[in-house]
Simulated assay, not measured.
Amino acid sequence: MASKITFIGAGNMASAIIGGLIDSGVSPSDITATAPNENELASQKARLGINTNTDNNAAVADANVVVLAVKPQIMRSVCEAMRDSVQQQSPLIISIAAGLDAATIDQWLGSNNALVRCMPNTPSLVGIGASGLYANNAVSDEQRTLATQLMEAVGIVEWVEEEILLDAVTAVSGSAPAYFFLMFEAMEEAAVKLGLPAATARRLAIQTALGAATMAQRSDKDPATLKQNVMSPGGTTERAIQHMEDAQLRATIADAMQACAQRAEAMSKELSAN
């Protein structure tokens, strides 16, 4: 990946992507991170050996890729302040800010920018994330490949061809780590009621989830088949699954994901209006 990459913002997600890029072979000297003051950048500079800057415009001046990694609430002021530099340099813009649509960010940056919206998730912090990406019409095939390579540094990448589908990505992967954490929490509580120590229950539940996910990832069988393979007629697993089906677990999950996607859409409208 022969590019100069600037991260506007140096929070947890930016640091995770930077670390993944360096692990994948990108030179720290090709990466710059910015923040309002040097104290916020000191740890990244010391730990990762990257360039740092408190001046966004200076950091954009020689960048081929600019990753917008600031909070959505301050995105407008950040973008408008570096509009001229972005227009002069014409880098690929990648936004990892939730809820802000591509057209709004493009307008704040002066319009006609090659812009990719990315919906990552928190497992990116440990290198096994899942990111959904959308590109506007100004993004070239080469830039699309570049965005893929950048986000694959922290996990898998899936592209969507309609921006509205990022709301579905939010529901199925962006917010979904919390669904599984809730499952771990509920399983631990139930196991304690069955007599297991909490720590034992937690370790068993988490390891089982890891094993099931790994099996699903490596198998050519769909989840329904894998589920069926664990079940024996009249056995313990069948009894548990039947109880979940009777309790309308599928409908609960579907309703929750629908609510998540609807909230993502509403947040986008709220943020763009501001």
Rank of each mutant, 00 (worst) to 15 (best):
D222M: 05
E161D: 15
Q228R: 13
L249Q: 08
T236W: 13
S175P: 07
E185D: 13
M267W: 09
A198N: 08
I241Y: 03
A209Q: 04
R250D: 15
Q242S: 15
V60T: 05
M183E: 15
L226V: 04
N137K: 13
V160Y: 05
V192W: 10
A178N: 05
E162S: 14
Q262Y: 09
A147C: 04
A97N: 00
A261K: 02
S232Y: 08
D23S: 12
D246P: 08
A224S: 11
V86H: 00
A264P: 01
I50V: 04
A266W: 12
T214Y: 09
A63Y: 02
M75N: 02
G132L: 04
D246L: 11
L226K: 06
P91Y: 03
A247L: 13
M244I: 10
F181N: 15
L194C: 15
L249K: 08
A201K: 01
E40M: 14
E245G: 07
T170H: 04
V70L: 06
I156E: 15
D255K: 11
A153M: 02
A259C: 12
A10H: 03
V139F: 00
M13F: 05
L249S: 08
K269D: 11
S27F: 11
A130H: 04
N113M: 11
P123G: 06
R250L: 11
N113V: 04
G235S: 08
A33I: 08
V230C: 01
D255P: 10
K45H: 11
G211A: 11
V126R: 10
A103T: 13
A103W: 12
R218G: 13
V160F: 07
S173P: 07
Q73G: 07
G20D: 01
K269C: 14
S173L: 10
M231S: 14
A264L: 01
Q228T: 15
M13P: 01
A98R: 04
L210E: 12
A251G: 12
S175H: 09
C118L: 04
F7S: 05
L165S: 10
G234R: 08
M151F: 02
S175L: 07
A254M: 14
G20C: 02
A190F: 07
M187F: 14
A147K: 00
E188I: 10
I18S: 06
G11L: 08
E265R: 15
R202P: 05
G155T: 02
A97W: 01
I105R: 03
A212P: 03
A168I: 07
N37H: 09
